[in-house]
């Protein structure tokens, strides 16, 4: 079963007087349970592709399918609903809500999904335990380290067991040890829950964890390599 399919995606940004092709006729298919790294130098188009897959940004042309459903023509509300139910996001800058505690940050998405309070608390507690944050549930982001914050962000992204997790430079602000721990966690989730991961990175060690490495340059896919993960 295909988790993600992109067909002939194009996206051009205008920077001053110059047009920059962020995506130049990109087509890619990712199977369910895939663990894919998009690697490119800065400006290579990996984040733009990730945003297009996540429905955060619309391509100028081309088609995007998630679990067989075309999403590039959906409305803002429909895209929001898709992200809420099917996609988890992990960002480089953690992007937690600063006024909420770790547990509340994790609960927040579930509340929007309409999960009952008791169930929310149980799931939030379990997932924070799973990502190694037991005992830190009531801390606010400002009182946690970068690694801890990123774990909360991961917990938030996966607590509803989305079929697809999109991560944009998830290790960029982490030290190497914490980055390794995070990638181990991703792989564990991928192995045990068959969650599909698409990770944009230029960190070679992260690429080492991927089952499939897609290299991009100037908005185009230049290499698509299956590899034995670390």
């Amino acid at each position: 079963m295909t988790a993600v399919r992109c067909v002939d995606l194009c996206k051009t940004y205008r920077q001053g007087e110059v047009d920059i092709k962020a995506l130049d006729h990109v087509s890619i298919e990712i199977k369910e349970g895939g663990f894919v790294c998009l690697s490119a130098p800065s400006g290579g188009g990996k984040t733009t592709l990730l945003n297009a897959i996540g429905g955060l940004d619309k391509p100028d042309s081309g088609e995007v399918y998630i679990a067989g459903q075309r999403i590039d023509n959906l409305s803002k509300g429909e895209l929001a609903e898709l992200r809420l139910r099917q996609i988890g996001f992990v960002f480089q800058a953690f992007n937690l809500i600063p006024v909420l505690t770790a547990r509340e940050n994790v609960e927040f998405v579930m509340q929007v999904q309409g999960v009952p309070a008791g169930e929310r608390q149980r799931l939030a507690h379990a997932i924070l335990d799973e990502v190694g944050l037991a005992g830190l549930e009531d801390r606010r982001p400002a009182d946690m380290s970068g690694g801890q914050q990123q774990r909360v962000a991961v917990a938030r992204a996966i607590v509803s067991r989305p079929a697809l997790v999109l991560a944009d430079e998830p290790t960029a602000n982490l030290d190497s040890k914490t980055a390794d721990e995070l990638m181990e966690l991703f792989r564990e989730l991928n192995d045990h829950h068959s969650t599909t991961f698409v990770i944009a990175t230029h960190d070679k060690r992260v690429m080492g964890y991927a089952k499939r490495l897609v290299r991009m340059l100037d908005g185009r896919i230049v290499a698509d390599i299956k590899q034995d993960a670390a």
């Binding site: 996540g54 955060l56 803002k76 509300g77 929001a80 609903e81 898709l82 992200r83 809420l84 139910r85 996609i87 996001f89 960002f91 992007n95 809500i97 600063p98 927040f108 998405v109 929007v112 999904q113 938030r156």
Partner: peptide
Amino acid sequence: EFGIVMSLGLTPG
């Protein structure tokens, strides 16, 4: 911050 929560699935409404 609103961008983040929109990416998590919150609608502008």
